[in-house]
Amino acid sequence: MSAHSATILTRPSAEGGARVRALAPALGAEITGLDLAAGVTPEAVALVLESLHRYGVVVVRDQHLTPEEQLGFMGRLGPVKTSSYSRANAFCVPGYPDMMVISNIVENGRNIGLMDAGAMWHADGTHMARPDMYTALYALEVPQRDGKPLGDTLFASTAEAYDALPDALRERVTGRRAVHSFAHHIEKKRRLGDLRRPPLTEAQKAELPDVEHPVVARHPVTGRRTLFVTEGHTARIAGLAPEESDALLEELWAHIRRPEFIYRHSWRVGDLLIWDNRATQHLAIFDYGELRRRMHRVETIGPVPE
């Protein structure tokens, strides 16, 4: 982590026997000894938020959560996001329209959840005027081969990436804005052969217009500057010719993906993985084929990026 970042937590927390341990140099931490199903205290919420803002991504281990409990906990972190796109495509947990199923499982001839989530580096909801603030993914089924878990998720710290920008590149992007587009995202998936969901309807396109956000955004809580352009949803940099925009975006994406900014999460059943969507990007690894994988996702809405 950058020198000005908060000191790494290795001490016992104020929340009973819970402990926080850093997992990688740039980002990532685990919390053990916290039982969210037993009741969410103000101290538990404060511990998770403090850890998120220090480490970007936090895994709370060994949870046994009902959908109500996961939704209730995320509601303590912020307003829970409602997704008309998820509802229209029947990707929700039955009876819980604000909770999306992320899964490759097919039952009765249909996918029970979203099968291609995370195929490109992205941050959740950047195609919206108010992108997601926090996302929580709860692991119910984790595929394994020869005793090794599959389907890892990679995270990159966009705050650390910004801090490490060369001066010339920082000057080129300061003050610029970029266009984020869900239609672009879906079309890019199709071109790459990664699309495993229905195409957008005209009604969905109308509900999800393109938006502009700053290329360099300030985190709404910590105040740190972050790079806010993603391989998955950023279509172009406003005001630049297409060739110049494409080249600059590729340079920024390659910088964000540098190994020193990465944490790779290896899943366990019972992991509640929460990430700060305004300070990170992530990528799913599809190495499990037809082996069953099932997760429940809940997101909170954040402010307009500045």
Score class of each variant (00 low, 15 high):
201 T>H: 05
247 A>R: 12
38 A>S: 07
298 V>C: 01
6 A>M: 10
287 D>C: 07
203 A>R: 15
52 L>Q: 00
29 A>N: 00
117 A>L: 13
275 W>L: 04
253 W>C: 00
252 L>H: 06
253 W>N: 05
202 E>C: 08
231 E>Q: 11
202 E>R: 02
19 R>Q: 15
297 R>P: 08
257 R>H: 01
162 Y>N: 05
195 L>R: 13
213 H>S: 00
75 G>P: 00
201 T>W: 05
159 A>C: 10
295 M>V: 03
159 A>S: 12
235 A>V: 08
160 E>M: 03
241 A>V: 05
190 R>D: 08
142 V>N: 09
74 M>R: 12
287 D>S: 03
293 R>W: 08
170 R>F: 04
87 R>I: 09
212 E>H: 07
205 K>G: 02
299 E>K: 13
144 Q>P: 01
301 I>S: 13
271 D>W: 11
236 R>E: 14
55 Y>G: 13
33 G>H: 07
65 L>N: 10
23 L>S: 15
289 G>Q: 10
130 R>L: 08
142 V>T: 02
80 V>D: 10
82 T>V: 12
22 A>P: 08
113 G>A: 03
183 A>T: 14
78 G>A: 08
292 R>T: 06
91 F>D: 00
112 I>E: 10
30 E>M: 00
43 E>L: 11
125 G>L: 07
19 R>F: 01
273 L>H: 12
245 S>T: 14
36 L>C: 15
129 A>G: 00
86 S>H: 08
111 N>M: 04
282 H>V: 12
7 T>I: 09
177 R>I: 08
234 T>Q: 05
132 D>V: 06
21 R>V: 09
157 S>K: 01
160 E>C: 06
181 S>P: 01
158 T>P: 05
137 L>F: 13
126 T>G: 07
112 I>H: 05
